[in-house]
């Protein structure tokens, strides 16, 4: 037991395959840890009520809103952010699909959208349009009307089926 409790905690985790370790305030949110401590600014903050999903990252294989996780809760976890999705300069099929189908406009919600779909498409490789819409109900977009995001997701699913890349967890 840590006596009176800790105001500063040491956390170590794997982020995009790389081990990282840092001492951070207990109150630091995971999203601030990623952005401000690690400089991974691809993960965005879009609200303060856990609604918008712009901060979505993959934690231990599952999409989470990193604004609603304290950094210390991710101690020992494997984190995948948008920066870690492309491998050796090759875009992930979801990224490709967003590009080809004009699945983004201002781009602010996009990393969160992509990470949510990463989790979802790993679990459901053959989704219907309705299922895709349900999967991203926690990711708000103000530009696209979701039409091309849904299209991108369905196209990504097809690409992922073709290359057999819907293995859970990791990149």
């Amino acid at each position: 037991m840590e006596g009176e409790g800790l105001e500063v905690v040491e956390v170590s985790m794997k982020v995009n395959g790389k081990p990282v370790k840092a001492k951070v305030p207990a109150r630091m949110l995971l999203v601030h840890f990623l952005r401000d401590v690690l400089g991974l600014t691809g993960t965005h903050v879009g609200c303060d009520t856990s609604n918008c999903g712009a901060c979505t990252v993959i934690m231990n294989g599952k999409a989470v809103k990193s604004c609603t996780v304290f950094a210390f809760m991710a101690d020992g976890a494997e984190i995948l952010t948008i920066e870690g999705l492309a491998q050796n300069g090759k875009l992930h099929p979801i990224q490709e699909a967003f590009w080809e189908n004009h699945g983004l406009q201002c781009g602010f919600c996009t990393p969160g959208m992509i990470m949510t779909l990463y989790d979802f498409l790993n679990r459901n490789p053959e989704p219907t349009e309705e299922e895709v819409r349900r999967a991203i109900e926690g990711n708000l977009c103000r530009c696209t009307g979701y039409v091309n995001i849904v299209r991108s997701a369905l196209a990504a699913a097809e690409k992922m089926r073709a290359v057999g890349r819907w293995v859970k967890g990791g990149a």
């Binding site: 967003f98 590009w99 004009h102 781009g107 996009t110 990393p111």
Partner: peptide, 21 residues
């Protein structure tokens, strides 16, 4: 034509004001 701005935005390499340090 698919967008020239997308490669940076889909890889987390966009630069928004909050990304400036």
């Amino acid at each position: 034509i698919k967008r020239k701005e997308d490669p940076r935005l889909i890889t987390g390499k966009g630069l928004y004001v909050d990304d400036i340090h």
